[in-house]
Computed example of a mutant assay.
Amino acid sequence: MAAAPSMAAAIAASLPAPSTAPTPAAPTHEAIPASMAKVIDLEADIPLTCVQLDGMVVSKIIKHARESQGSSAHGILLGLDLDGTLEVSNSFALPQHINDDDDKSVKGIARYQASMLRSLKEVQADDSIIGFYQAMSLGSFYNQSLVETQAIQQDKLRHGGIVLVHDISQTARGNAAFRAFRLTRAFFDAYKRNNFSTDSLISHRLTFSSILEEVPIKIRTSPLLGAFLETLSAPSTSPVSEPSSASAQASVALPPSFSVLNLGTNDVNKNLEQVIEAMDAYKTEEGNIAYNQRQIAREKAKADAYVAKRKEDNAARLAQGLAPLPEEDVSRLFKIPPEPSRLESMMLLGRIDAYSKTLEETSSTGLVKMYAARGTANV
């Protein structure tokens, strides 16, 4: 997930910025008929209810994630928003760089993205950005970089855009897992205010489960893609009545898979390691927050003690008929640090929850396989 900051900067550079120059007078247009008002949604009044993925987009994302061999695969989604549905018709991958903090990497990704959009426009293909996709592993996609990228989109795109997450660990088990998300209004409001203090979380009723809201997904496949998948899944008939074993195996489009014999112990071990790492990171983050809070309480106590002492001195001076001492700005005398943000803690809690749910699924399946293997061995 280290490439997400560069992707956020690239998306911010390519998305249209609000213009400050005076614009010429807009031409007059005829009013849209009432019968077409619900279809032609110029002001984005129709709420987003569904994301429709083209089958070729699904294949391209799976191929990109498999070739990247990790959860760093990310790219741009292109398409059209129509009548409350985001129709994702195309996508392209963004390059990966080793040093994503380098400004040259950010500019390189932005130039590559702009070049791809120009090329798509020249061939009259869809070149409107409606979101981005991100590969993940073991169901965990909560991180600050993804939130920042989605916040940029949600602020500039017409319907806010979506982030499409693809679980490569589920795909390895034969399940093409895709989920679409966008930021909730409460979290987006707190993000724009850049305030994730305890009072802000309470007022917005924010937890890790209310950061993102899921949007339903539909996958549309063309007849050509359906026919291609059918040829992969169905064995081809041989004109020979009794083919040999070698020719019979060659006649099958897909080779036999022995993945069902895998007990899944490796996935459980890896999942447990991720849970432990996330819990250690959460414990460290909570320790840092507790340390900052103790510093804040210590400085506030010093400021309160100074104010109380100044009041006592002024009361004594007034009793003696002397002029009171002038009041001083406490914030200038005592540097009270701001309350630490709890955004990272929320992200880590979401990561732990995702890892735990995936561990529950994989461990239950693995236990059933282990008991079945044990029973077969005893027989």
Score class of each variant (00 low, 15 high):
residue 127 D to V: 09
residue 112 Y to A: 15
residue 67 E to M: 15
residue 217 I to K: 05
residue 20 T to H: 03
residue 71 S to H: 12
residue 373 A to T: 04
residue 290 A to S: 09
residue 30 E to H: 14
residue 290 A to I: 05
residue 353 D to E: 12
residue 168 I to D: 02
residue 225 L to E: 14
residue 79 G to A: 06
residue 145 S to L: 03
residue 202 I to Q: 04
residue 200 S to H: 10
residue 207 T to R: 03
residue 331 S to M: 02
residue 205 R to C: 07
residue 156 K to C: 12
residue 67 E to L: 15
residue 331 S to A: 08
residue 234 A to C: 08
residue 192 K to S: 07
residue 244 S to F: 11
residue 88 V to A: 01
residue 143 N to K: 05
residue 337 P to G: 04
residue 367 L to S: 07
residue 58 V to H: 08
residue 173 R to H: 13
residue 286 E to F: 10
residue 103 D to F: 02
residue 246 A to S: 15
residue 128 S to N: 13
residue 356 S to A: 02
residue 177 A to R: 15
residue 118 R to I: 00
residue 168 I to Y: 09
residue 14 S to F: 04
residue 304 D to K: 02
residue 8 A to E: 13
residue 232 L to V: 08
residue 223 P to Y: 11
residue 199 D to T: 14
residue 223 P to F: 11
residue 216 P to L: 06
residue 105 S to I: 08
residue 161 G to I: 10
residue 142 Y to P: 02
residue 299 E to R: 14
residue 163 V to Y: 06
residue 187 F to H: 03
residue 173 R to Y: 03
residue 57 V to P: 13
residue 65 A to P: 02
residue 203 S to D: 14
residue 316 A to M: 04
residue 326 P to D: 03
residue 90 N to Q: 13
residue 364 S to W: 01
residue 44 A to P: 10
residue 311 K to V: 10
residue 129 I to A: 01
residue 89 S to R: 01
residue 172 A to D: 01
residue 196 F to Q: 00
residue 142 Y to W: 08
residue 337 P to A: 11
residue 47 P to D: 05
residue 23 T to S: 10
residue 197 S to M: 08
residue 291 Y to H: 13
residue 273 E to K: 06
residue 240 V to Q: 05
residue 350 G to P: 00
residue 240 V to S: 09
residue 347 M to T: 00
residue 170 Q to E: 14
residue 73 A to F: 05
residue 236 S to Y: 04
residue 246 A to E: 15
residue 127 D to M: 08
residue 285 E to A: 15
residue 17 A to T: 08
residue 283 K to H: 07
residue 128 S to F: 11
residue 181 F to Y: 15
residue 92 F to L: 00
residue 254 L to A: 13
residue 259 S to D: 08
residue 1 M to C: 04
residue 350 G to I: 06
residue 348 L to C: 11
residue 292 N to T: 13
residue 193 R to A: 05
residue 104 K to M: 05
residue 10 A to Y: 09
residue 341 S to P: 14
residue 41 D to T: 05
residue 260 V to T: 11
residue 278 A to Q: 04
residue 77 L to R: 14
residue 239 P to H: 09
residue 270 K to G: 15
residue 54 D to I: 04
residue 206 L to P: 12
residue 222 S to Y: 09
residue 283 K to R: 00
residue 23 T to R: 02
residue 178 F to W: 02
residue 215 V to Q: 13
residue 8 A to I: 05
residue 138 L to T: 06
residue 80 L to D: 12
residue 52 Q to C: 06
residue 83 D to P: 03
residue 150 Q to T: 01
residue 345 S to K: 07
residue 87 E to L: 07
residue 379 V to T: 10
residue 93 A to N: 12
residue 359 L to G: 02
residue 17 A to S: 12
residue 88 V to P: 05
